[in-house]
Design a protein around this nucleic acid. Structure first.
Lengths: 210, 210
DNA sequence: CTGTGATTCAATCATTTGATGGATATGAAA
DNA sequence: TTTCATATCCATCAAATGATTGAATCACAG
Protein backbone atom coordinates (compact mmCIF):
# COMPACT_ATOMS: atom_id res chain seq x y z
CA UNK A 1 0.00 0.00 0.00
CA UNK A 2 1.26 3.47 -0.79
CA UNK A 3 1.24 6.25 1.76
CA UNK A 4 0.27 9.77 0.66
CA UNK A 5 3.92 10.70 0.93
CA UNK A 6 5.06 7.95 -1.41
CA UNK A 7 2.37 8.95 -3.84
CA UNK A 8 3.55 12.55 -3.75
CA UNK A 9 7.16 11.59 -4.36
CA UNK A 10 6.20 9.43 -7.31
CA UNK A 11 4.64 12.27 -9.31
CA UNK A 12 6.35 15.60 -8.60
CA UNK A 13 3.70 17.47 -10.58
CA UNK A 14 0.81 16.17 -8.49
CA UNK A 15 -1.01 18.53 -6.21
CA UNK A 16 0.14 16.48 -3.23
CA UNK A 17 3.77 16.98 -4.24
CA UNK A 18 3.37 20.67 -4.98
CA UNK A 19 1.85 21.24 -1.56
CA UNK A 20 4.58 19.21 0.11
CA UNK A 21 7.30 21.24 -1.61
CA UNK A 22 5.88 24.58 -0.56
CA UNK A 23 5.22 23.28 2.93
CA UNK A 24 8.85 22.19 3.27
CA UNK A 25 10.08 25.61 2.32
CA UNK A 26 7.69 27.59 4.47
CA UNK A 27 7.79 25.37 7.57
CA UNK A 28 11.57 25.58 7.23
CA UNK A 29 11.55 29.36 7.18
CA UNK A 30 9.00 30.07 9.88
CA UNK A 31 8.76 26.91 11.93
CA UNK A 32 5.57 25.10 12.85
CA UNK A 33 3.85 27.87 14.78
CA UNK A 34 5.13 30.61 12.50
CA UNK A 35 3.53 28.97 9.49
CA UNK A 36 -0.18 29.14 8.70
CA UNK A 37 -2.02 26.81 6.39
CA UNK A 38 -3.05 29.91 4.48
CA UNK A 39 0.58 30.84 3.81
CA UNK A 40 1.21 27.42 2.32
CA UNK A 41 -2.01 27.41 0.30
CA UNK A 42 -1.22 30.83 -1.09
CA UNK A 43 2.30 29.75 -2.06
CA UNK A 44 0.85 26.79 -3.95
CA UNK A 45 -1.91 28.95 -5.40
CA UNK A 46 -4.81 26.91 -4.06
CA UNK A 47 -7.55 27.16 -1.46
CA UNK A 48 -6.91 26.05 2.11
CA UNK A 49 -9.58 23.42 1.87
CA UNK A 50 -7.73 21.78 -1.01
CA UNK A 51 -4.71 21.55 1.23
CA UNK A 52 -6.79 19.92 3.94
CA UNK A 53 -8.28 17.56 1.38
CA UNK A 54 -4.85 16.23 0.44
CA UNK A 55 -2.97 16.26 3.71
CA UNK A 56 -5.58 16.15 6.45
CA UNK A 57 -4.43 19.01 8.63
CA UNK A 58 -1.56 21.26 9.50
CA UNK A 59 0.01 18.81 11.91
CA UNK A 60 -0.29 15.88 9.52
CA UNK A 61 1.28 17.92 6.74
CA UNK A 62 4.10 19.02 9.03
CA UNK A 63 4.87 15.48 10.07
CA UNK A 64 4.90 14.39 6.44
CA UNK A 65 7.37 17.16 5.72
CA UNK A 66 9.65 16.01 8.53
CA UNK A 67 9.55 12.42 7.35
CA UNK A 68 10.20 13.64 3.81
CA UNK A 69 13.29 15.65 4.64
CA UNK A 70 14.66 12.86 6.79
CA UNK A 71 14.23 10.54 3.84
CA UNK A 72 16.07 12.92 1.52
CA UNK A 73 18.88 13.45 3.96
CA UNK A 74 19.30 9.74 4.56
CA UNK A 75 19.46 9.17 0.81
CA UNK A 76 22.17 11.79 0.46
CA UNK A 77 24.19 10.39 3.35
CA UNK A 78 24.20 6.96 1.73
CA UNK A 79 25.41 8.59 -1.47
CA UNK A 80 28.21 10.40 0.37
CA UNK A 81 29.19 7.24 2.17
CA UNK A 82 29.69 5.48 -1.17
CA UNK A 83 31.81 8.34 -2.51
CA UNK A 84 34.26 8.27 0.40
CA UNK A 85 34.46 4.53 0.96
CA UNK A 86 38.00 3.32 1.45
CA UNK A 87 39.70 6.72 1.48
CA UNK A 88 41.89 7.96 4.34
CA UNK A 89 40.10 9.85 7.11
CA UNK A 90 41.18 13.37 6.24
CA UNK A 91 40.01 12.90 2.66
CA UNK A 92 36.77 11.35 3.83
CA UNK A 93 36.11 14.44 5.91
CA UNK A 94 37.14 16.80 3.13
CA UNK A 95 34.88 15.21 0.56
CA UNK A 96 31.99 14.68 2.97
CA UNK A 97 32.01 18.35 3.87
CA UNK A 98 32.07 19.41 0.22
CA UNK A 99 29.27 17.11 -0.87
CA UNK A 100 27.04 17.62 2.12
CA UNK A 101 27.48 21.37 2.13
CA UNK A 102 26.71 21.70 -1.57
CA UNK A 103 23.64 19.55 -1.21
CA UNK A 104 22.27 21.40 1.78
CA UNK A 105 22.85 24.82 0.23
CA UNK A 106 20.60 23.62 -2.57
CA UNK A 107 17.99 22.42 -0.06
CA UNK A 108 18.34 24.77 2.90
CA UNK A 109 14.91 23.84 4.20
CA UNK A 110 16.40 20.55 5.32
CA UNK A 111 18.84 22.26 7.65
CA UNK A 112 16.21 24.75 8.70
CA UNK A 113 13.72 22.11 9.69
CA UNK A 114 16.24 19.93 11.46
CA UNK A 115 17.50 22.80 13.58
CA UNK A 116 13.94 23.83 14.38
CA UNK A 117 13.28 20.37 15.67
CA UNK A 118 16.44 20.29 17.74
CA UNK A 119 16.07 23.64 19.39
CA UNK A 120 12.42 24.53 19.44
CA UNK A 121 9.47 23.06 21.23
CA UNK A 122 6.08 22.58 19.66
CA UNK A 123 3.22 23.11 22.05
CA UNK A 124 2.04 19.58 21.38
CA UNK A 125 5.03 17.41 20.70
CA UNK A 126 5.25 13.93 19.37
CA UNK A 127 8.67 12.62 18.50
CA UNK A 128 8.96 11.58 14.88
CA UNK A 129 12.71 11.96 14.65
CA UNK A 130 13.63 8.61 16.08
CA UNK A 131 15.63 8.24 12.90
CA UNK A 132 18.14 10.98 13.73
CA UNK A 133 20.19 8.94 16.23
CA UNK A 134 20.46 6.34 13.50
CA UNK A 135 21.89 8.96 11.13
CA UNK A 136 24.50 9.87 13.68
CA UNK A 137 25.37 6.24 14.26
CA UNK A 138 25.66 5.67 10.51
CA UNK A 139 28.02 8.58 10.13
CA UNK A 140 30.09 7.43 13.09
CA UNK A 141 30.53 4.05 11.47
CA UNK A 142 31.29 5.43 8.02
CA UNK A 143 33.92 7.73 9.51
CA UNK A 144 35.54 4.79 11.22
CA UNK A 145 34.69 6.08 14.69
CA UNK A 146 32.52 3.11 15.59
CA UNK A 147 32.50 -0.56 14.65
CA UNK A 148 28.79 -1.19 14.34
CA UNK A 149 25.67 0.94 14.38
CA UNK A 150 24.67 -0.40 17.75
CA UNK A 151 26.61 0.67 20.79
CA UNK A 152 28.14 3.90 19.58
CA UNK A 153 29.97 5.49 22.49
CA UNK A 154 28.46 8.75 23.82
CA UNK A 155 31.74 10.55 23.13
CA UNK A 156 31.59 9.49 19.50
CA UNK A 157 27.95 10.42 19.16
CA UNK A 158 28.71 13.89 20.48
CA UNK A 159 31.53 14.40 18.01
CA UNK A 160 29.35 13.42 15.10
CA UNK A 161 26.61 15.73 16.33
CA UNK A 162 29.11 18.57 16.52
CA UNK A 163 30.05 18.07 12.88
CA UNK A 164 26.47 17.70 11.63
CA UNK A 165 25.28 20.72 13.55
CA UNK A 166 28.07 23.00 12.46
CA UNK A 167 27.14 22.32 8.86
CA UNK A 168 23.44 22.91 9.43
CA UNK A 169 24.26 26.11 11.31
CA UNK A 170 26.04 27.76 8.42
CA UNK A 171 23.40 26.68 5.92
CA UNK A 172 20.42 27.69 7.97
CA UNK A 173 21.97 30.87 9.30
CA UNK A 174 23.06 32.00 5.86
CA UNK A 175 20.89 35.10 5.89
CA UNK A 176 22.26 36.23 9.20
CA UNK A 177 25.90 35.24 8.83
CA UNK A 178 26.36 36.22 5.22
CA UNK A 179 25.22 39.69 6.10
CA UNK A 180 27.59 39.65 9.06
CA UNK A 181 30.72 38.88 7.05
CA UNK A 182 29.50 40.99 4.13
CA UNK A 183 30.32 38.74 1.20
CA UNK A 184 28.41 37.44 -1.80
CA UNK A 185 26.73 34.05 -1.83
CA UNK A 186 29.41 32.15 -3.75
CA UNK A 187 32.09 33.51 -1.46
CA UNK A 188 30.01 32.63 1.57
CA UNK A 189 29.64 29.05 0.46
CA UNK A 190 33.38 28.80 -0.08
CA UNK A 191 34.00 30.32 3.34
CA UNK A 192 31.67 27.80 4.95
CA UNK A 193 33.54 24.85 3.47
CA UNK A 194 36.88 26.35 4.36
CA UNK A 195 35.83 27.04 7.92
CA UNK A 196 34.29 23.61 8.45
CA UNK A 197 37.47 21.95 7.26
CA UNK A 198 39.61 24.24 9.36
CA UNK A 199 37.62 23.33 12.45
CA UNK A 200 37.01 19.63 12.00
CA UNK A 201 39.86 18.03 10.10
CA UNK A 202 42.62 18.77 12.66
CA UNK A 203 40.49 17.41 15.51
CA UNK A 204 39.80 14.04 13.92
CA UNK A 205 43.13 13.50 12.16
CA UNK A 206 45.05 14.38 15.32
CA UNK A 207 43.14 11.90 17.43
CA UNK A 208 43.62 9.40 14.62
CA UNK A 209 47.40 9.73 14.85
CA UNK A 210 47.44 9.24 18.60
CA UNK B 1 16.24 58.62 31.72
CA UNK B 2 15.64 54.97 32.57
CA UNK B 3 14.13 52.61 30.05
CA UNK B 4 11.58 50.01 31.22
CA UNK B 5 14.28 47.40 30.82
CA UNK B 6 16.74 49.19 33.09
CA UNK B 7 14.01 49.65 35.63
CA UNK B 8 13.24 45.94 35.54
CA UNK B 9 16.87 44.97 35.97
CA UNK B 10 17.26 47.28 38.95
CA UNK B 11 14.61 45.57 41.07
CA UNK B 12 14.44 41.82 40.35
CA UNK B 13 11.29 41.46 42.45
CA UNK B 14 9.33 44.04 40.48
CA UNK B 15 6.48 42.89 38.30
CA UNK B 16 8.35 44.15 35.23
CA UNK B 17 11.30 41.92 36.11
CA UNK B 18 9.17 38.89 36.90
CA UNK B 19 7.41 39.19 33.57
CA UNK B 20 10.71 39.63 31.73
CA UNK B 21 12.15 36.51 33.36
CA UNK B 22 9.24 34.30 32.41
CA UNK B 23 9.13 35.80 28.94
CA UNK B 24 12.82 34.97 28.44
CA UNK B 25 12.23 31.38 29.37
CA UNK B 26 9.09 30.84 27.34
CA UNK B 27 10.12 32.76 24.23
CA UNK B 28 13.32 30.71 24.40
CA UNK B 29 11.45 27.44 24.51
CA UNK B 30 8.75 28.09 21.94
CA UNK B 31 10.02 30.99 19.85
CA UNK B 32 8.09 34.13 19.05
CA UNK B 33 5.15 32.60 17.23
CA UNK B 34 5.01 29.54 19.48
CA UNK B 35 4.56 31.72 22.54
CA UNK B 36 1.29 33.36 23.50
CA UNK B 37 0.93 36.28 25.86
CA UNK B 38 -1.40 34.07 27.87
CA UNK B 39 1.35 31.48 28.37
CA UNK B 40 3.65 34.14 29.79
CA UNK B 41 0.95 35.69 31.96
CA UNK B 42 0.04 32.29 33.36
CA UNK B 43 3.68 31.53 34.15
CA UNK B 44 3.95 34.79 36.07
CA UNK B 45 0.57 34.22 37.66
CA UNK B 46 -1.02 37.43 36.45
CA UNK B 47 -3.66 38.60 34.00
CA UNK B 48 -2.75 39.31 30.36
CA UNK B 49 -3.78 42.92 30.72
CA UNK B 50 -1.22 43.42 33.48
CA UNK B 51 1.42 42.17 31.08
CA UNK B 52 0.28 44.65 28.47
CA UNK B 53 0.25 47.39 31.07
CA UNK B 54 3.94 46.88 31.80
CA UNK B 55 5.41 45.94 28.44
CA UNK B 56 3.05 47.31 25.82
CA UNK B 57 2.56 44.30 23.63
CA UNK B 58 3.91 40.93 22.65
CA UNK B 59 6.37 42.33 20.14
CA UNK B 60 7.66 45.00 22.51
CA UNK B 61 8.17 42.43 25.23
CA UNK B 62 9.97 40.11 22.85
CA UNK B 63 12.34 42.83 21.73
CA UNK B 64 13.07 43.73 25.32
CA UNK B 65 13.87 40.09 25.98
CA UNK B 66 16.30 40.00 23.08
CA UNK B 67 18.04 43.16 24.22
CA UNK B 68 18.14 41.76 27.74
CA UNK B 69 19.80 38.47 26.83
CA UNK B 70 22.30 40.25 24.58
CA UNK B 71 23.18 42.46 27.53
CA UNK B 72 23.67 39.45 29.80
CA UNK B 73 25.77 37.61 27.27
CA UNK B 74 27.93 40.64 26.62
CA UNK B 75 28.49 41.02 30.35
CA UNK B 76 29.56 37.40 30.64
CA UNK B 77 31.91 37.64 27.68
CA UNK B 78 33.68 40.60 29.25
CA UNK B 79 34.04 38.56 32.43
CA UNK B 80 35.49 35.61 30.53
CA UNK B 81 37.84 37.88 28.64
CA UNK B 82 39.27 39.12 31.93
CA UNK B 83 39.75 35.59 33.21
CA UNK B 84 41.79 34.47 30.23
CA UNK B 85 43.80 37.61 29.61
CA UNK B 86 47.46 36.91 28.97
CA UNK B 87 47.25 33.12 28.94
CA UNK B 88 48.42 31.00 26.00
CA UNK B 89 45.84 30.27 23.32
CA UNK B 90 45.07 26.67 24.17
CA UNK B 91 44.41 27.61 27.79
CA UNK B 92 42.32 30.59 26.73
CA UNK B 93 40.16 28.24 24.72
CA UNK B 94 39.99 25.67 27.47
CA UNK B 95 38.90 28.13 30.11
CA UNK B 96 36.56 30.05 27.80
CA UNK B 97 34.75 26.85 26.94
CA UNK B 98 34.41 25.87 30.59
CA UNK B 99 33.16 29.24 31.77
CA UNK B 100 30.85 29.93 28.87
CA UNK B 101 29.38 26.45 28.88
CA UNK B 102 28.69 26.51 32.62
CA UNK B 103 27.06 29.91 32.34
CA UNK B 104 24.85 29.00 29.42
CA UNK B 105 23.73 25.73 30.98
CA UNK B 106 22.47 27.87 33.85
CA UNK B 107 20.71 30.21 31.43
CA UNK B 108 19.75 28.03 28.49
CA UNK B 109 17.18 30.55 27.30
CA UNK B 110 20.06 32.69 26.09
CA UNK B 111 21.24 30.02 23.69
CA UNK B 112 17.68 29.17 22.77
CA UNK B 113 16.78 32.69 21.83
CA UNK B 114 19.97 33.36 19.94
CA UNK B 115 19.55 30.26 17.81
CA UNK B 116 15.92 31.11 17.18
CA UNK B 117 16.98 34.49 15.86
CA UNK B 118 19.70 32.99 13.66
CA UNK B 119 17.64 30.28 12.06
CA UNK B 120 14.02 31.31 12.16
CA UNK B 121 12.12 34.07 10.47
CA UNK B 122 9.47 36.14 12.17
CA UNK B 123 6.62 37.10 9.91
CA UNK B 124 7.33 40.75 10.57
CA UNK B 125 11.04 41.16 11.12
CA UNK B 126 13.04 44.03 12.39
CA UNK B 127 16.68 43.43 13.12
CA UNK B 128 17.61 44.20 16.70
CA UNK B 129 20.70 42.02 16.79
CA UNK B 130 23.10 44.52 15.31
CA UNK B 131 25.14 43.80 18.41
CA UNK B 132 25.94 40.20 17.52
CA UNK B 133 28.65 40.98 14.93
CA UNK B 134 30.26 43.08 17.62
CA UNK B 135 30.31 40.08 19.97
CA UNK B 136 32.04 38.02 17.33
CA UNK B 137 34.56 40.75 16.69
CA UNK B 138 35.22 41.07 20.43
CA UNK B 139 35.84 37.38 20.75
CA UNK B 140 38.10 37.37 17.72
CA UNK B 141 40.22 40.07 19.30
CA UNK B 142 40.31 38.45 22.71
CA UNK B 143 41.41 35.17 21.16
CA UNK B 144 44.22 36.95 19.37
CA UNK B 145 42.71 36.28 15.94
CA UNK B 146 42.26 39.95 15.09
CA UNK B 147 44.08 43.12 16.00
CA UNK B 148 41.22 45.52 16.44
CA UNK B 149 37.44 45.22 16.54
CA UNK B 150 37.08 46.91 13.19
CA UNK B 151 38.14 45.05 10.06
CA UNK B 152 37.95 41.49 11.27
CA UNK B 153 38.62 39.22 8.30
CA UNK B 154 35.65 37.15 7.05
CA UNK B 155 37.63 33.96 7.62
CA UNK B 156 38.17 34.92 11.25
CA UNK B 157 34.55 35.91 11.74
CA UNK B 158 33.44 32.54 10.43
CA UNK B 159 35.73 30.66 12.79
CA UNK B 160 34.43 32.56 15.76
CA UNK B 161 30.86 31.92 14.65
CA UNK B 162 31.63 28.22 14.40
CA UNK B 163 32.82 28.17 18.00
CA UNK B 164 29.94 30.23 19.38
CA UNK B 165 27.36 28.22 17.53
CA UNK B 166 28.71 24.85 18.53
CA UNK B 167 28.37 25.87 22.16
CA UNK B 168 24.83 27.16 21.75
CA UNK B 169 23.89 24.01 19.87
CA UNK B 170 24.74 21.67 22.70
CA UNK B 171 23.06 23.90 25.30
CA UNK B 172 19.91 24.51 23.36
CA UNK B 173 19.63 20.98 22.01
CA UNK B 174 20.14 19.43 25.42
CA UNK B 175 16.72 17.81 25.49
CA UNK B 176 17.23 16.19 22.14
CA UNK B 177 20.89 15.25 22.38
CA UNK B 178 20.94 14.13 25.98
CA UNK B 179 18.20 11.69 25.17
CA UNK B 180 20.17 10.58 22.13
CA UNK B 181 23.33 9.68 24.03
CA UNK B 182 21.34 8.41 27.01
CA UNK B 183 23.28 9.94 29.89
CA UNK B 184 22.40 11.99 32.95
CA UNK B 185 22.60 15.76 33.00
CA UNK B 186 25.95 16.07 34.79
CA UNK B 187 27.51 13.58 32.43
CA UNK B 188 26.02 15.40 29.46
CA UNK B 189 27.53 18.72 30.54
CA UNK B 190 30.92 17.06 30.95
CA UNK B 191 30.58 15.47 27.52
CA UNK B 192 29.73 18.82 25.97
CA UNK B 193 32.86 20.45 27.36
CA UNK B 194 34.99 17.50 26.36
CA UNK B 195 33.60 17.46 22.83
CA UNK B 196 33.94 21.20 22.34
CA UNK B 197 37.57 21.06 23.40
CA UNK B 198 38.22 18.02 21.24
CA UNK B 199 36.84 19.83 18.21
CA UNK B 200 38.13 23.35 18.64
CA UNK B 201 41.47 23.31 20.42
CA UNK B 202 43.39 21.35 17.76
CA UNK B 203 42.11 23.61 15.00
CA UNK B 204 43.24 26.85 16.56
CA UNK B 205 46.45 25.66 18.18
CA UNK B 206 47.58 23.95 14.99
CA UNK B 207 47.08 27.09 12.93
CA UNK B 208 48.83 28.98 15.69
CA UNK B 209 51.92 26.83 15.39
CA UNK B 210 52.11 27.26 11.63
C1' DC C 1 -8.89 59.66 56.87
C1' DT C 2 -8.86 61.21 52.18
C1' DG C 3 -7.50 61.85 47.68
C1' DT C 4 -4.60 60.60 43.92
C1' DG C 5 -1.90 58.08 40.97
C1' DA C 6 -0.23 53.45 40.09
C1' DT C 7 -1.44 48.76 39.58
C1' DT C 8 -4.33 44.74 38.73
C1' DC C 9 -8.12 42.13 36.98
C1' DA C 10 -12.60 40.63 34.74
C1' DA C 11 -14.98 41.21 30.67
C1' DT C 12 -14.91 41.98 26.07
C1' DC C 13 -13.44 43.01 21.21
C1' DA C 14 -11.44 42.26 16.61
C1' DT C 15 -8.58 39.49 14.00
C1' DT C 16 -6.28 35.37 12.86
C1' DT C 17 -6.30 30.69 12.13
C1' DG C 18 -7.31 25.66 11.72
C1' DA C 19 -10.91 23.28 10.07
C1' DT C 20 -15.41 21.80 7.71
C1' DG C 21 -19.71 21.49 4.75
C1' DG C 22 -21.67 21.94 0.61
C1' DA C 23 -21.68 23.29 -4.19
C1' DT C 24 -19.35 22.81 -8.51
C1' DA C 25 -16.32 21.01 -12.02
C1' DT C 26 -13.85 17.28 -14.38
C1' DG C 27 -13.41 13.03 -16.33
C1' DA C 28 -13.77 8.05 -16.47
C1' DA C 29 -16.94 4.12 -16.43
C1' DA C 30 -21.38 2.01 -17.38
C1' DT D 1 -26.37 10.17 -21.35
C1' DT D 2 -26.13 8.97 -16.68
C1' DT D 3 -23.42 7.87 -12.70
C1' DC D 4 -19.91 8.25 -9.62
C1' DA D 5 -15.39 9.18 -7.63
C1' DT D 6 -11.96 12.76 -7.43
C1' DA D 7 -10.65 17.35 -6.92
C1' DT D 8 -11.29 22.21 -6.16
C1' DC D 9 -13.26 26.37 -4.30
C1' DC D 10 -16.53 29.51 -1.62
C1' DA D 11 -18.62 30.49 2.58
C1' DT D 12 -18.53 29.83 7.15
C1' DC D 13 -17.57 28.14 11.88
C1' DA D 14 -15.33 27.75 16.46
C1' DA D 15 -11.37 28.35 18.94
C1' DA D 16 -7.24 30.86 19.85
C1' DT D 17 -4.98 35.06 20.34
C1' DG D 18 -3.36 39.97 20.79
C1' DA D 19 -5.22 43.82 22.58
C1' DT D 20 -8.31 47.30 25.10
C1' DT D 21 -11.63 49.24 28.42
C1' DG D 22 -13.39 50.35 32.69
C1' DA D 23 -13.96 49.18 37.32
C1' DA D 24 -11.80 47.69 41.51
C1' DT D 25 -7.82 47.69 44.53
C1' DC D 26 -3.59 49.20 46.50
C1' DA D 27 0.11 52.44 48.20
C1' DC D 28 0.93 56.31 50.35
C1' DA D 29 1.52 61.51 50.63
C1' DG D 30 -0.97 65.16 52.63
Amino acid sequence: MTTPLEKARKDPESMKARILDCARRIFGQYGFHGTTTRMIAQAVGIDISTLHYHWGGKKDLYESVVVDINKDLRQKLIEVEKAIHGLPLSERLDISIDLTTDYLFEHPEISNLILFRYFGKTRSNGNIDSIIPEFAADIARSMGLAQDKKNVAPETMMKVLAVMNSIHNFISGEGFFQDMVKVERERYIALVKETLKFIHIPAFTQSDAK
